[in-house]
Structures are given as C-alpha cells and as structure tokens.
C-alpha cells in the first residue's frame, strides 16, 4: 500500500508572538505585510492560504 502525505501545513504567517509552533513561522509586522507574505508563499509553494480566524494564516499543500 502506498503511504503518502496528502495534506501538509508548509508554513504559518502571523502577526502575534508565540501563537504557532512546529512549522516554519513567518512573523509580519502588520496585517498588510501578513497578506503579502502569505500571497507570496502561496504562489511559491503552490499552496493555499487558510485563515484560522485568530490572526494566523497557514499555508497548506492540498
């Protein structure tokens, strides 16, 4: 049987401190910068940016 990781959190982008761990975290100084970083990362990683609702964006490869 093939075992493969289908969904994967590649990175997280946040403006807060200490909210995320375990994945590469990009800290932005404000929301505008957070969106810019998330857009760039989603294009580069071919991933989708999801909003967790607590100010954290995660980039997920589907």
């Amino acid at each position: 049987m093939d075992v493969a990781i289908r969904k994967l959190i590649l990175a997280a982008v946040t403006t807060g401190e200490g909210e995320v761990s375990g994945v590469p975290v990009f800290h932005a100084k404000d929301d505008e910068q957070k969106e810019f970083i998330a857009t760039t990362l989603s294009r580069v990683l071919e991933a989708v940016a999801h909003d967790l609702g607590n100010g954290v964006y995660i980039l997920v490869r589907h």
């Binding site: 969106e35 998330a38 857009t39 989603s42 989708v48 940016a49 999801h50 909003d51 609702g53 964006y57």
Partner: peptide, 20 residues
C-alpha cells in the same frame, strides 16, 4: 462568512487571502 465560502448552506472551503 469571514474567510469561509459557502454555496447556500454547504461549506466549500476556507480562503485566507482577501485578493483571492
């Protein structure tokens, strides 16, 4: 509804980026 997109009552996905 916030970052979540629905078709009628069915949740389709969560889209983080405002541009998208």
């Amino acid at each position: 509804e916030g970052p979540n997109i629905f078709v009628e009552d069915i949740h389709i996905m969560n889209l983080g980026l405002p541009e998208i």
